[in-house]
Amino acid sequence: MTGYYTQLIVNGIVAGSIYALFAVGLAMVYGVFKFINFSHGELITWGGYLALMFSSPPIALPLYLAVIPALLLTVGIGLAQDCFVFRPLRQSNPISILIASIGLSYLLRNGIRLFWGSDLQSFNLPLSTGIIFGDIYITRIQILMVLSALLFFSILYFLLTRTLLGKSLRAVSDNIELSSIMGINMRKVTWTIWILASVFAGSGGILLALDTSLDPMMGMNSLIKAFAAVLLGGAGNIWGALVGGLFIGITENLSVAFISPDYKDFISYGLIFILLLIKPRGFFGIAGGVR
């Protein structure tokens, strides 16, 4: 019977790696700009759909090449969001930005529906051949998901702890006023955050699409999980968000053994609700700060 649970945990780690990617991006944006970007989910969706577009006729690039323009465009969307919507609203009431990000998310999501329709789509790739380790079944793409997440996080860790840019980024999320006194280049830091968040979200979206399928709501659904993960780890705490993502992935998948799969999402919702009420700073939360 342990094989069953182990399989669920493995599924959980796979799902959790991707949630962690989304959560980390969301946490970074919150850590520096102090707002929850409701339209973060659409970076996920657009990443996936753009990769589909570049790898399908008429462009028909092989997938490993198609991800490059897909991610570049996703980064473009992320930067445009900041440039045209979030930056002008930076000094406003946090509610204005929240509503604006809700509007943006609606705009972008319907953009997907406009160009690609609402039906499920998928990549037609033979990546779903699986490997069997003892009792565990895992597909090639799922292994890729976990490895990609590991790679991204390693790069992020290196960036944040070994480069001046990364340290400046952490400084900005600690104390933005002090950072400008220090002479830190805010524009560079801003761009870096959005590039990182967009790349993580877009890549996660592509991987998710490869593992399951594409639909216009995929970003929104992932956003809820990502947000729960961010809250769990402490709003703004990157590594907490990572752990939070894994935790939610594993919990969701394990829960299938106990409750109806229809209520899987309920876990994330419930977690968010409870965490907001008892501990909006999460379990590793220290006031703000990207760490």
Partner: peptide, 15 residues
């Protein structure tokens, strides 16, 4: 910066 080490604080302070 509380969440940076002393060395990191100095690196940033010397930007």
């Amino acid at each position: 910066f509380p969440n940076l080490t002393i060395i990191e604080n100095l690196e940033v302070a010397g930007t």
